[in-house]
Write a protein that binds this DNA or RNA. Structure first.
Length: 282
DNA sequence: AAAGACTTCAACCGCGCTCCC
DNA sequence: TGGGAGCGCGGTTGAAGTCTT
């Protein structure tokens, strides 16, 4: 059943658009055509659904035309992703979802899309909204309490937990590298804000600011061989953590841990010397 | 009952990234 | 190689709903 919250507003705003230029000075063509804004109607949803069912997701710039909608591509995409996608959960967040969200936020920061990807049926917008309305206050008050308890503690800026450089074999069964490579795995980084985040893009760390932001699994090899896929490591790490938390077995689930580690036999043992549960203390 | 304060969340906006020409 | 187009993300906005006085 459809429930529209802002019926008056949506019709009043229908043609209320402003000419806008983006940061590069490009004229936004969508804004010049007098596209509709505001809340979506049932009819518009029907058109959009039919269009996606017929042509599939993607090519959003074609969607308004294909669907016969007077909406910009962004609006169509957002409506589909946040509301019309099948399997979206509309009920409130369960306790375990909230718990997972808190843990993931500690690990990933405000990367809502990554967090949402770990919460089936939840969108990045849902997660972001829930965080801002429920959890942020909780976190702020908790931080204030901690500050009261430890008023004289000084923060360490960009403390890097950095194992010594290692040489890995490039002949594991899973990767066909042709040379040995020297890598410097920066396993975890804590900032003065207590935030930790992964280096999903396999970026090379070149400056201290970036070190402050990223966890790097392995730096880019210099001999032209394939980079170790940090994003893959990270995803698997999260899978393991998710498994642990869902089974309530804590960090002692060594069978899973061993399976996980065996997926990356080329990575030295010292790389695994940290535990995601340790991030709880951040 | 009414008015103001507060909360919720759908939608908008700007920006950065990637791809392609 | 530079620029334009398209896409996706995170921050922000603001109307509607709910609560409080």
């Amino acid at each position: 059943m459809y429930m529209y919250r802002c019926s008056k507003y949506m019709y009043m705003r229908a043609t209320d658009h402003t000419m806008s230029m983006d940061n590069k000075g490009k004229l936004n063509m969508e804004m010049t055509r007098g596209v509709r804004k505001g809340a979506w109607t049932y009819e518009e949803d029907k058109l959009l659904k039919a269009c996606i069912q017929k042509y599939g997701e993607g090519k959003w710039h074609l969607v308004p035309q294909r669907a016969g909608l007077n909406r910009c591509r962004k609006s169509c995409r957002l409506r589909w992703l946040n509301y019309l996608t099948p399997n979206i959960k509309r009920e409130s967040f369960a306790e375990d979802e909230v718990d997972m969200m808190l843990r993931l936020h500690k690990l990933l920061g405000n990367r809502w899309s990554l967090i949402a990807a770990r919460l089936p049926g939840r969108t990045a917008n849902d997660v972001k909204n829930y965080w801002h309305t429920h959890l942020r206050k909780k976190m702020v008050s908790r931080t204030l309490e901690e500050k009261k308890e430890k008023p004289k503690e000084t923060m360490k800026v960009h403390e890097i937990i950095k194992p010594k450089p290692r040489t890995f074999s490039t002949h594991p069964p899973s990767l066909n590298w042709k040379h040995n490579i020297n890598v410097t795995p920066i396993v975890a980084v804590s900032t003065q804000h207590g935030e930790v985040s992964p280096n999903r893009d396999n970026k090379e760390i070149t400056d201290s600011n970036q070190i402050g932001r990223d966890i790097v699994g392995v730096s880019q090899p210099s001999l032209g061989s394939a980079p170790i896929p940090c994003a893959m490591l990270w995803d698997s790490l999260l899978n393991l953590e998710e498994h642990k938390s869902s089974e309530k077995i804590g960090s002692g689930s060594l069978l899973q841990e061993e399976n996980f580690i065996s997926e990356f036999p080329n990575v030295d043992d010292s790389f695994w010397d940290f535990n995601l549960c340790d991030f709880d203390s951040l």
